[in-house]
Design a protein around this nucleic acid. Structure first.
Lengths: 212, 212, 212, 212
DNA sequence: AATGAATGAGAATTCATTCAT
DNA sequence: GATGAATGAATTCTCATTCAT
């Protein structure tokens, strides 16, 4: 984990610019605890104690324990989206951009285990996630990916006989499959290697014949 | 899930032959509940209610809630081991036996989601698993696999320049990787297809040159 | 309050015959505390401490704090209904029976302040009361009253030009008005006097001309 | 409720003349919230939010939450006293003045439910009310009433064989009895009718024979 | 073989209140 | 005159576990 990454305002929401110290401490504390434990077995006392604040403060800034989780996730997603959008700039050709995006995605998981764990394992079971801001940001991200695919289709570098949304599903599924074991069993993810393999198998499947 | 499979004494431990009905009911209840919920969010009241017994009875037969989980797991492992040992009989050649064993392993996961979930997701986090009977059975199974690999090495059908234990690691890791997503996100596992793919990639990696 | 009244099984529900001692203790404790305090300012710790049990036991026998209140109320209602039905027996003429019922009702409030307070002040604000068993019993009681009124109408001793339900409303309203101050400010209710006054004013309003 | 009535300085305490806007906002907010909720279930956050100020400001102007309630009550009492004193002016005969005072009292409750609720239901349970300014004002009011009764006794229009204080008790009790149900169950109070009925029963009881 | 009764420790959450600025 | 930040103590409720019978 690289907490410094988030301690200065890397959130994409400008309204969060000036965050009260207690709120930051609480979010940092949860992130720290998530390194070693599942969310459900982390208690509010623990979070408060780790943050050096009182339990009550958690409820000043967050509706409940899960809202805290969602806000931490949203912060990570802010970074992820910002990076993704930056990372594809200056690259020519949708397929090359896509390759970079996949790399960027895998890299994000590789560098931020806590983020990956929250997104892939912690939030999905509970329905209120799907009405959270975090979920909106996920949709924002996947829309960005979809746009890239559609560009590829227009360019002729991506097959047009498969719906763009299906292609997106394949890409996201493959990334998840590939990263999950490392995330669950906590062993290192070789970003370069893994994303290469992924692209190899994905592209040979989806690339238009001319580009294969 | 095939409850009938386990409702009469399929455990490998012969001392468990004549199981009191209450114990069976409790184990069945936990299995049933694990279809829809994580272990941590299943309560003892729920287990007792589902089993149609009192909570106290759980503590008659099991040291604690996790011990119950371990005994349920052990029961599944008993079946798995028995099958594995039967399945490789009458097959000639270590590599062909290995192929069958991989198929058998995947098939076990495919048919018994609850078992797979317990083994791959529920027990590993908690240290007392590693001193349970269930863990001993897992070791029994992996030893069986190791013996098969060593036989292959002796036969000359498996490379001798990689330690047999490393090969075992590769095999077990690959099976897990392949099955985990289906187990977590609860979609069907195509045993035949999946085990074919697995063998393809594993064998082309580990098989000796003469057999490739 | 006459706790002895309820400590042996005076509940009308025969299924409650053999009540576990802890449950009885808890209900008695709440009744005791309600003598001096409002329900909202009585804590579960207090109830448990007064009952000489642990807080957890409350939740073994009651869904939540309000369910406990409803069950205490239901017990009182059981007594009230039983008494009411007994009290009107052997009396000739619906109007005389009605007079006795009003007396019985006022008497119940006079003797059981806690009951009166629960019924008139504590439960009505919270919507889940209306789906409780206690509320069903209240309806049972008011139906009994309605039947009496209807009998009076048939007999010709009660006016037929006012709907029986409206008459019932008048009666119940008048009783409440008359008793509330005594209940709120905790001064004695003179059952005989008060019920006489009530009947006087009510009957001169509703009695048919022939009987006035 | 007529908030405009109180938003400018209607308090009788001249030292409060120039009230800071925040204080007014807080008192108005509590009054507004009391329309729908009991005092105990109104939180300071709610008050602050409704007032558009911070919670801390409440503690700038009021010792605690109950002190705020007492000050709101005092404000109402100021109006009540001022009106009462005005209302009896220009009326001849203590009994006629008394009749007007009763009307004025009932009218105050009828028009200001929140006031009535605070006075009759919210403050009395808690002992520190009796050392508050508000309580002093209540005593001021009841002294005024007492003086009127004594004047009636001197005039010969009110019986002299019952202590004036007992008569006062009867009057205040009767008013309360009559208004409470409407206040609790929130239905309209017909000032004219109700105060007529009250006077009728009270006067026929207490008036000297010559005046009956 | 099984149960009814009860518990202790801890969970999330709430709320009035304080204080430095 | 007002606020932002933070707190401490309590509150309802949960859950695995025990034990006498």
């Amino acid at each position: 984990m690289t907490p410094s990454l988030f301690s200065n305002n890397s959130s994409i929401d400008p309204s969060e610019k000036q965050r009260p110290p207690g709120k930051t401490k609480i979010m940092d504390a949860l992130r720290l605890l998530l390194v070693d434990k599942e969310f459900v077995s982390i208690t509010t006392v623990e979070i408060a104690r780790t943050a050096g604040v009182t339990e009550a403060l958690i409820y000043k800034y967050f509706q409940d324990k899960r809202d805290l989780l969602h806000q931490v996730l949203a912060e990570y997603l802010g970074v992820m989206i910002a990076r993704a959008e930056t990372d594809v700039r200056g690259i020519k050709g949708a397929l090359h951009q896509l390759r970079k995006l996949i790399w960027s995605h895998v890299n994000m998981y590789a560098d931020n285990r806590v983020f990956a764990r929250i997104l892939l394992l912690e939030v999905r079971n509970y329905p209120d996630y799907f009405s959270s801001d975090a979920y909106q940001m996920v949709k924002h991200y996947t829309n960005f990916l979809l746009a890239l695919i559609e560009k590829g289709v227009e360019e002729g570098s991506i097959r047009s006989d498969i719906p763009a949304t299906a292609i997106r599903q394949v890409i996201l599924g493959a990334i998840e499959h590939a990263c999950l074991p490392g995330i669950i069993f906590n062993y290192p993810i070789q970003t370069d290697e893994l994303s290469d393999q992924l692209c190899e198998s994905i592209f040979n499947g989806i690339a238009a014949l001319t580009s294969s």
